[in-house]
């Protein structure tokens, strides 16, 4: 009988899938497996795909994966969709565009709900990356939820971040530059078969002329793609590789991963603290009482928080 760790390292799909469920549910058993998996990670190139809703992120990942499979790369795909904050349910539909990849044993796709995390990711995404990395995937593609302006956390997770734009988004690229426009290593103008694509590329170019790179420290490149015409995906893959080579040559991979693991540590601590506050019966009652006191103006929120903190430190 193989251990879970051995099954994951051997790439066993069922074992991978069950461990992902366990980390999503914060199972204590999963944490022990995660401890032992970490030393087997660090091989995979982590690529984030983000961009406007309806821009074609899933289709792009499907096409890009097809190119990568031809080169023999093993692929993990994490597709994130929003969880309803009201019911806790989620409709995860990214696989619709990736149908044929299900036939390939070297592609593992997992759909995840955000389950209350803001920033366009899911709280368990860091663990899922580790699992797929340990399972021997060469590339891990992460599809974030459709982006408005705030969902830019992917840049702290991915080695290479792709921002997807489409023609006809509005008057000018300038109007959406905050956040989203600052995280791209590669801009993709998808649906390039549509009218206005040239203008979008031209606007991007002029935007980049005055761009001072903040996150990647390398001027982003622009790639035009069309799923309909099956155009541009070889080029996109080449640009992804060039970016990765740039990162490796300048030791920037280490820098990137330092950022990611700092987020990972903070996330682990956050989960534990929330667990301490909400899982212990005694403290749950205290929190309830404190919240009532704040509502009735017997206490201010800061003093209430002090009370919770000091009982945690004890």
């Amino acid at each position: 009988m193989k251990t879970v760790e051995q099954q994951i390292l051997a790439g066993d799909q069922q074992a991978i899938a069950r461990l992902i469920t366990a980390v999503e549910n914060n199972s204590p058993v999963a944490i022990d497996v995660m401890r032992s998996l970490h030393r087997h990670t660090g091989h995979a190139h982590i690529i984030g795909v983000t961009g406007v809703m309806g821009g074609g992120k899933s289709s792009l990942i499907y096409k890009l994966s097809s190119v990568m499979r031809k080169k023999g790369l093993k692929i993990g795909i994490i597709a994130i969709d929003p969880t309803s904050p009201f019911t806790g349910g989620a409709l995860l539909g990214d696989r619709i565009r990736m149908g044929e990849l299900s036939d390939d044993p070297d592609v593992f796709i997992r759909s995840m709900g955000t389950r209350g995390m803001l920033g366009g990711l899911s709280g368990a995404v860091y663990d899922v990356i580790e699992i797929l990395d340990a399972a021997g995937k060469d590339v891990i593609l992460i599809e974030t939820v459709g982006v408005g302006q705030a969902e830019v956390d992917i840049v702290k997770v991915a080695d290479t971040t792709i921002v997807l734009l489409v023609p006809g988004l509005g008057d000018s690229i300038q109007t959406i530059k905050a956040g989203l426009m600052e995280i791209a290593d590669i801009f993709v103008v998808n649906k390039a078969d549509k009218p206005g694509a040239d203008q979008t590329v031209a606007e991007l170019e002029s935007f980049l002329d005055v761009y001072a790179p903040t996150v990647s420290q390398r001027k982003p490149v622009i790639v035009s793609t069309s799923v309909k015409e099956n155009m541009g995906f070889e080029d996109l893959h080449e640009q992804i590789q060039l970016h990765y080579m740039f990162l490796q040559k300048n030791e920037k991979v280490v820098e990137k991963r330092k950022i990611r693991y700092e987020v990972v540590l903070v996330e682990i601590i956050r989960k534990r603290l929330m667990g301490l506050i909400y899982d212990q019966k005694r403290l749950t009652q205290t929190v309830d009482q404190l919240v009532s006191d704040v509502v009735q103006r017997k206490l201010d929120p800061y003093t209430a928080a002090d009370t919770i903190f000091s009982s945690l430190i004890k």
């Binding site: 309803s84 806790g88 349910g89 409709l91 995860l92």
Partner: peptide, 15 residues
């Protein structure tokens, strides 16, 4: 099913 709080994966057509 989503509105009942479940996570629903939809496969798409022709599977």
């Amino acid at each position: 099913l989503r509105d009942a709080g479940m996570e629903v994966i939809y496969s798409g057509l022709h599977q």
